[in-house]
Design a protein around this nucleic acid. Structure first.
Length: 260
DNA sequence: AATCTTGGCAACCGCCAAGAT
DNA sequence: AATCTTGGCGGTTGCCAAGAT
């Protein structure tokens, strides 16, 4: 019988330090990597003279010490990008981070859980009140709502998307991913994040939500509207990741929104 | 002023996939 | 082919500061 390999925690060794990094440790790690590169993370702490496990060193470097890390608050554009990409990819933080230069998956995950999710849930709850038959109302009002398998419409407004949408869908149709009859281009399928999303007060009476019937009509091939949980769908999105991302870049002519 | 609660974030844990042996 | 090692990822935890009571 084949046994599953199990590895113990990487920091089992005695004397290995855990918890927050001190400035001195940071300095040692930076200095070592600048001189030698990181090479083998497991061997690094010993060679650098750090009482840390390799994994801890790698995490500290990739999430905090790397020179190309961008610190500070996320811009609205970055937040919008996260929302859009999360809509496409679900909780695949590293894939999302790859589209946000200088931001780490950990940071994006944190900002999602602490800021963005709350805003969207607030919208979702308000939408539930006003649109009982909508897709959103059909979703459970907890964090699962935003799983790729069950996420609802969080995309830019029709105005924001319209310029890029037709070329996007054209291309997908060329590739055979999307069929013309599966698409309804009418703007009602694109509930919007408008200025109310970015402010503390939400005015959501006019959030556009597709009905279940509409959703079925659209089918399962349009990632912007109906994220599907299947691996097939997932890979289609992945294959066209740049394409979808470019859509959102093109759709970036958002209205001037107030600062937080 | 002291205590409790909440929110934000850095860091850890466990699992998995890929590459090496 | 089987086993081992490593790096990467996502979920979760725990600490700390700020705000509320």
């Amino acid at each position: 019988m084949r046994r599953k390999m199990v590895r113990g925690p990487c920091c089992e060794e005695m004397g290995v330090k855990k918890g927050p990094w001190s400035p001195e440790e940071d300095e040692i790690l930076i200095s070592y990597i600048q001189q030698h590169g990181h090479g083998n993370w497991r061997a690094l702490p010993k060679q650098a003279g750090l009482l840390r496990c390799g994994k801890s060193c790698r995490l500290r470097w990739t999430n905090y010490l790397r020179p190309d890390i961008k610190r500070g608050n996320f811009t609205r554009e970055e937040e919008q990008t996260i929302i859009n990409l999360h809509q496409m990819l679900g909780n695949r933080w590293s894939a999302i981070a790859a589209r946000l230069p200088g931001r780490t998956d950990n940071e994006i995950k944190n900002v999602w859980h602490t800021h963005l999710k709350k805003k969207i849930i607030k919208i979702n709850q308000t939408s539930q009140d006003s649109k009982s038959q909508s897709i959103i109302a059909n979703s459970e009002c907890d964090t699962k709502v935003f799983d790729i398998s069950n996420s609802e419409e969080i995309v830019t407004s029709p105005q924001q998307c319209s310029s890029g949408l037709s070329s996007v869908t054209d291309s997908l149709m060329e590739k055979g991913i999307l069929k013309n009859e599966e698409i309804d281009y009418s703007s009602e399928y694109f509930p919007r994040i408008d200025e109310s999303f970015w402010s503390e007060e939400l005015f959501l009476d006019d959030v556009n939500c597709p009905s279940m019937e509409d959703e079925n009509k659209i089918g399962s091939q349009l990632p912007l509207n109906s994220m599907q949980s299947s691996v097939e769908m997932d890979s289609k999105i992945e294959d066209n990741m740049d394409f979808w991302y470019n859509l959102f870049i093109r759709a970036g002519d958002m209205p001037d929104l107030p600062e937080f």
